[in-house]
Design a protein around this nucleic acid. Structure first.
Lengths: 213, 213
DNA sequence: GGCGTATTGTGAACACTGTCCACATACCGT
DNA sequence: ACGGTATGTGGACAGTGTTCACAATACGCC
């Protein structure tokens, strides 16, 4: 009974089912956030029986985790692009400041542009056995490492003492992350994006000023 | 006379079903976060048929929203208590600074002490028709308004210019909120609470320094 | 007091989800 | 060629939110 199940596939084997499911899941996450990535719907879109997913993912949490990883990669790529746009001139301090600014802005812009992906990226409580292999973009760096890079430039430029540099990632990250989430799934939901972006500018300046003792 | 026994009630009418369901939901949120508040389970604990809930809540989102509101009230109460502990001495600047510190610390402490409630408090995208009636504690102020109070003291003490005061709530709030969420449902999940609290201290200092231009 | 009526809880059902089992199929190395 | 194994199917189960028709109760009005 080789009745091709209602959709396109001709061969019994799909050939690339894992990736297809992941792509479907990613799209669902993109336009609906983490709660929208539902296993059965993914199989339906791909044109395959629900159980087929279990040959490639342990369960839906596993699928969601893969989607989440992809989302983080996209975020990393966005930051990387913005960071690449700032060129190292002769003024090291300016360079450093612009780098930090770029990371913060890219982070927020991504959150505004791709709310579903952003929320998905940080929706799941990550496993302790965190294998952050795939959380990277072309440079092979995840968002956290890109932020670290910018902060290192601040250290190099003498804008940050060695002591203040320690753990500075978390301070900067928290600020921007908080604003993004207050907008995306918090009480700032109704605030227009322009206002958020204006706040973002002030926020990054605040971090820059306040981060050094 | 209808007694709300947790096991089996005598009367047909419950008498206080709405509150009972809300209490059950709040407890589930407390020990499992927003995803743990499930309508059927609440009715089961109260000893009532699932449909009975629909006489008091439009749907489970409505129930969850009520639970969320209760969580915010608890957060407000925690902040209020910490804020009440700082006394106004002769040094207005110290008073203001300690007030801001207290709000930030209370916010983070609550997040660490009651992760389920905290996550629930900010899990739902709030309705635009925000009726923030119940989001308050004894003072009748929600967390945002308490933060505003602390910032007003900064303004009074001359630690903040009028211009910098505008929208400063969002800057301070974002920072602390971000740290809390990075810990509770983000990549900082594995970081020990002591480290988070140490970061919190630094964070509030950063805000204090960076918030004024 | 008695009775009609709106309020509140019940029972059965539906659609949907994740997940498991046994089975069928197609590919692959020997 | 053929048997083993990876991969997909069908059918089932528990659990969820939700709706409909119905039953029991409390309350107001005469």
């Amino acid at each position: 009974m080789p009745k091709a199940t209602s959709t396109k596939r001709k061969t019994f084997r799909h050939g690339d089912l894992r990736n297809a499911l992941l792509a479907a899941g990613l799209e669902m996450a993109r336009k609906g956030g983490p709660d929208a990535v539902v296993l059965r719907e993914a199989t339906r879109q791909v044109g395959v029986a629900p159980n087929a997913a279990y040959r490639h993912f342990a369960n839906q949490a596993d699928l969601l985790d893969a989607v989440r990883s992809a989302c983080i990669s996209q975020l990393a790529a966005a930051i990387e692009a913005e960071l690449a746009a700032v060129k190292a001139g002769r003024d090291k301090k300016l360079y450093a400041r612009r780098s930090l600014m770029a990371v913060g802005r890219a982070y927020l812009c991504f959150a505004m542009r791709e709310p579903g992906m952003f929320r998905t990226a940080f929706s799941v409580i990550p496993d302790i056995h965190g294998d952050n292999k795939a959380n990277t973009a072309s440079l092979g760096l995840n968002p956290f490492q890109l932020l670290s890079m910018a902060l290192d430039r601040m250290l190099d430029a003498g804008l940050l003492s060695k002591k203040d540099r320690q753990g500075a990632e978390f301070l900067a990250w928290s600020s921007v992350h908080g604003l993004a989430l207050l907008k995306l799934e918090g009480p700032l939901h109704a605030m227009p994006v322009e206002a958020i972006e204006a706040l973002g500018e002030r926020l990054v300046q605040m971090v820059e000023r306040g981060i050094s003792q």
